[in-house]
Simulated assay, not measured.
Amino acid sequence: MEVNMTANEVMNAIQQLKSQGENLTKKKVKQSHPDLMRHALHYFPDWNSAISKSDLA
């Protein structure tokens, strides 16, 4: 897998989706934003960790 997003870019993308009111369940994000999901799981142990870290950023 080619990693072309940084951890900060992943967190910013999650924050942006959240601010747009998108559903952030793992299943929905995997369907609508598969690249974001792949990168999030590269940097974080699981999807919920990525969301938690994004909320703190």
Rank of each mutant, 00 (worst) to 15 (best):
P45Y: 01
E22T: 01
G21N: 12
M11K: 15
G21C: 10
L56H: 09
Q15T: 04
I14H: 08
A13S: 15
D35A: 03
M1W: 07
A7I: 06
N48H: 10
Q20D: 13
H42V: 05
K26N: 09
P45K: 05
H39L: 00
D55T: 01
L17N: 11
A57W: 09
S54V: 01
N12E: 15
A13Y: 13
A57V: 04
L24E: 09
M5S: 11
A7L: 12
M1A: 13
Q16N: 15
S32Y: 03
M1P: 15
K28C: 02
Q16Y: 12
N12F: 06
S32D: 13
I14V: 11
H39I: 00
K30I: 01
W47M: 03
S54Q: 03
K30P: 00
Q31W: 07
K27Y: 10
I14Q: 06
K30C: 06
K30Y: 11
S49G: 00
L24R: 02
A50I: 03
I51E: 01
M5W: 14
S19P: 08
K18V: 00
A7N: 11
Y43D: 12
D35W: 03
A50R: 02
M11D: 02
M5K: 13
H39D: 10
L36G: 11
T25I: 06
L56T: 07
L17T: 04
G21F: 07
V3N: 12
A13F: 12
Y43M: 05
N23T: 03
K30H: 12
H42S: 03
K27W: 07
M37T: 11
M1H: 14
K26Y: 14
D55A: 05
F44S: 02
D35Y: 10
S19I: 02
S32N: 11
M37I: 04
D35F: 04
I14A: 04
L17G: 09
W47L: 01
V10T: 11
A7Y: 04
Q31Y: 11
H39V: 00
S49F: 08
A50Y: 03
Y43P: 12
T25D: 15
K26P: 08
L41V: 04
D35S: 10
R38E: 14
N8K: 12
V3L: 15
M11I: 02
I51V: 09
R38K: 15
V29W: 04
A57K: 08
Q31M: 10
H42D: 02
N23L: 08
K18M: 10
D55S: 05
N12L: 11
K26L: 08
G21Q: 12
T6W: 08
E22D: 12
I14D: 08
D35K: 13
L41K: 03
K26R: 14
S54N: 01
K27S: 12
N12T: 06
N48Y: 07
Q15E: 10
Q16S: 13
K27M: 07
A40R: 01
